[in-house]
Simulated assay, not measured.
Amino acid sequence: MAHVLVLGGGFGGLAAAHELRRRLPPTDEVTVVAMSDRFFVGFAKLWDVAGLRPLLDGTRPLERLRRRGIRFLQAEITSIDPAARQVETTAGTLSADGIIVALGATYQPTSAALLENGAFNLYHAEALPGIRAALEELTEGTLLVSILGAPYLCPPAPFEATLLLEERLRKEARRERVNVVVSTPAPLTLPVAGADASRYLADRLTERGVTVLTEHAVETIDRETQTVQFEGGDSLEWQLLLAVPAAAPPPVVTKSPLAGPSGWIEPDRHTFATHTDRVYAVGDCTLIPTSTAQLPKAGVFAEAAGKISAANLAADLYGGDHITFDGYGFCFLELPGKQVATVTGDFYAEPRPDVRLTPPDEASFRAKQQWEQERLTAWLG
Rank of each mutant, 00 (worst) to 15 (best):
A84N: 11
V253F: 00
D234N: 10
L213F: 08
Q229T: 14
S309L: 00
Y200S: 07
S235Q: 15
V4Y: 07
P251I: 03
T290P: 10
E362F: 06
T206V: 09
E136V: 13
R53P: 08
Y152G: 01
T31V: 15
L153I: 12
D268L: 02
L143I: 09
D361M: 11
A202Y: 01
N121D: 15
V182N: 08
I147D: 05
R22F: 05
K307L: 02
A202W: 03
Q370E: 05
D234E: 13
L5C: 05
A2N: 10
E219Q: 15
P129M: 04
W238N: 09
E116R: 13
R168Q: 13
W379V: 00
V244R: 11
P61I: 03
S309R: 06
E88S: 14
A197F: 04
T189S: 14
V41C: 00
L258V: 02
A363G: 12
Q226L: 01
R269V: 04
T290F: 01
L169C: 06
G69A: 07
E140N: 13
T342N: 13
A15E: 07
A34F: 00
A298W: 00
A193R: 13
T206F: 09
A150R: 08
A314H: 08
L52Y: 14
G130L: 06
D234A: 12
M35W: 06
T290E: 09
P249E: 01
G319K: 09
L163Q: 09
A157C: 07
L205R: 11
F301Q: 10
Y318C: 03
R352N: 08
I100S: 00
P151S: 04
P61M: 01
R204C: 02
A341M: 10
V282H: 04
D97R: 11
G51P: 03
R21G: 07
V300N: 09
V228Q: 11
V252H: 00
M1V: 15
F120I: 12
T225I: 05
L242G: 10
L52K: 12
P353V: 09
T90D: 08
L128T: 07
L55F: 01
A298P: 05
A293T: 14
A195H: 10
F120L: 06
S95H: 11
A161Q: 08
L357Y: 05
T254V: 14
H216C: 03
T142P: 10
Q229P: 04
A195K: 15
T227V: 14
L148V: 05
A75P: 08
N117K: 14
A298M: 03
L165T: 13
A17S: 11
V181F: 04
L242Q: 11
L94Q: 13
E237A: 11
T292A: 14
F301L: 09
G260S: 08
T162I: 13
T89R: 06
T254D: 03
